[in-house]
Design a protein around this nucleic acid. Structure first.
Lengths: 341, 341
DNA sequence: GTGAAAGCGCTAACAT
DNA sequence: ATGTTAGCGCTTTCAC
């Protein structure tokens, strides 16, 4: 059904093809394509037209080879299904694009084993890498740091790893969240966890435990930061009759709230529920989510600043950044119900 | 604070470096790195060790240049913030990985102008491209089809374009959705649109209009398939007192429901609301969403089948696929309220 | 302002 | 089984 579909020309169109067709040298074609100014405008014009007619596209592989750089950065995403990461990546992307870098996003298809291999592979294709993977362990991180490709660790601060890194201060934010709950009279809470290998999870759980000084007693319930798993374990989290459930992130909170609704438990009058991240949907669900706002855009931008510096061989004074994350109280938290005992 | 951070060696480590260090030829190193069997195991072992010690990584640019192929496919995403697309891309990714292809995901940072340029650029880096962009116009598509890189159009069926393509049968599904609404007694409905340039939007709106034969009168309200815009225009959609709102997708439905809640309008008793796509969150919000299930995973897998065939120069009989999308009734739709007039 | 020519790092004949 | 060598397509001195 193709209309005038010419079979693709057998030979690839290269600089030489264009040069021959335009009656100039390959050097001139290269200069025109790269936008170097030292070509007479009318000649440049003609070359451009010939190139267009021939459908010429410079080979990125050849360019990358001769320049020793691809002008590409990579982003390794842990989970394409979590809106949180898009927002961070968008921040990186935006500023990187302004600096003339394209961004390659790689997802490791959910296979954690694959994460390290994917990172190494990706490094071969880019000039620098933003690592958003919270679960890579420290030896893997060390190995990655040995390579020559600049890397910045995003959304995670791991002392003792020789990499620029930037994260959100989950610990302080979670403590603030606990304070909010304590003030509302909550004493028994359940922590619906993220993946236990994730730095963010360790920080948040540590803060929840620390909140004992506020009178909060916490039980940890294993989940993984997804809606479905959190939905599945929400009932189990009810075991010790908590009056509040602190969820690792907003997705987990949504799963928990959904399950509580199915169970006939009222949120927030029976049980308060909190999230973390403040994804866009959080203010639109019912009840709207009390959560912590991660400055995702700034996270992304600052990550790019770090990466860009590394790309240019500049050394940055303080290459470990920790961003504050403010609490946002909405309607999924309320005063603890009176003890029915 | 770096522990034993060696400055990166001044010279790049290449095949030659490794060959010299291991006392073999570059060809042998190449064979070992590519896993070609014709090397004596013990020699291969030694080469591998030397390569490891030197931190050698073959240059992907050089490989790509000499092989004329990168073993990479690209996916151009319209919107990193829409969960729908991840699921499709995951389907592609999974099967492509099995076939030894890595996937590069590019997002055009929300700039529609940029979409075409991004596609062209991406084509330079990959052997084949999955185009998930619903908004590229036909001339742009034609231009893309002229290039030598195989492309498959995903989530969209555009007759007259000489490209393999695969989409979901929005028209039939939407008609079914209208039938469901008509049976519930709805007559006046508002269609909360997606981006008007999107194929899916045209199909769905066409079906809504067609449903006139069922007695449904529809008004179109412009939105763009995002939560925020749909939230913003939801009140305006109430103008003609519809008893149901058919939203372009689930995200739009979530925005609309949120606004109606703020307005004190009950869903579904006052107004029924429907979505489209059946994203994971839809069953967990309140009320749970009546929607249409797009077979995203199958969409992705079939897209890969098409692309893989094109990559190998095989011609596929029927390269225009249209997948059925079943209706799933949940709790955001109910009988139309009795006419209060 | 333009051309000639030397590689960038790798793989794939072709030799041995 | 391993080595030699000729490019892949491009950019970039260096001449002119």
């Amino acid at each position: 059904m193709g209309i005038g579909a010419r079979p693709a020309d057998a030979r690839r169109v290269t600089v030489r093809t264009v040069a021959a067709a335009a009656g100039v040298s390959t050097a001139t074609v290269s200069r025109v394509m790269s936008g170097v100014a030292t070509v007479k405008p009318e000649l440049a014009q003609r070359v451009r037209q010939v190139a267009d007619e021939l459908g010429y596209r410079p080979s990125e592989s050849a360019r990358g080879l001769v320049r020793g750089a691809t002008r590409h950065i990579g982003a390794l995403m842990p989970d394409l299904a979590n809106a949180y990461f898009h927002d961070v990546v968008k921040g990186v992307h935006h500023d990187a694009a302004d600096a003339g870098f394209r961004m390659l996003i790689a997802d490791h298809a959910g296979d954690p084993e694959d994460e390290h291999a994917t990172a190494v592979d990706l490094m071969g294709h880019v000039d620098g890498l933003a690592l958003l993977s919270p679960r890579l362990d420290r030896p893997a991180l060390r190995d990655l740091a040995r390579h020559h490709t600049p890397i910045v660790l995003v959304n995670r601060v791991e002392p003792g790893i020789d990499l620029p890194m930037i994260g959100v201060d989950s610990f302080t934010a979670t403590l603030e969240l606990c304070g909010h709950l304590a003030k509302l009279g909550h004493r028994r809470v359940a922590y619906v966890s993220g993946n236990e290998a994730a730095w963010q999870d360790r920080e948040r759980w540590r803060a929840v435990q620390t909140s004992q000084f506020m009178g909060i007693e916490a039980t940890r319930v294993e989940s993984d930061g997804t809606i479905e798993t959190s939905y599945a374990i929400a009932e189990q989290a009810l075991t010790d009759s908590p009056t509040a459930m602190i969820c690792f992130n907003d997705l987990a909170a949504i799963g928990v709230i959904s399950r509580l609704r199915d169970l006939g438990v009222q949120v927030p009058s029976d049980v308060s529920v909190t999230g973390f991240d403040d994804i866009a949907i959080g203010r639109h669900i019912f009840p709207s989510l009390t959560t912590v706002t991660s400055p995702r855009d700034e996270l992304g931008r600052r990550a790019w600043t770090l990466l860009h510096a590394a790309l240019e061989g500049r050394t940055i004074e303080d290459s470990t950044l920790m961003l504050p994350a403010p609490l946002v109280v909405r309607h999924s938290t309320a005063a603890a119900p009176n003890n029915p005992g």
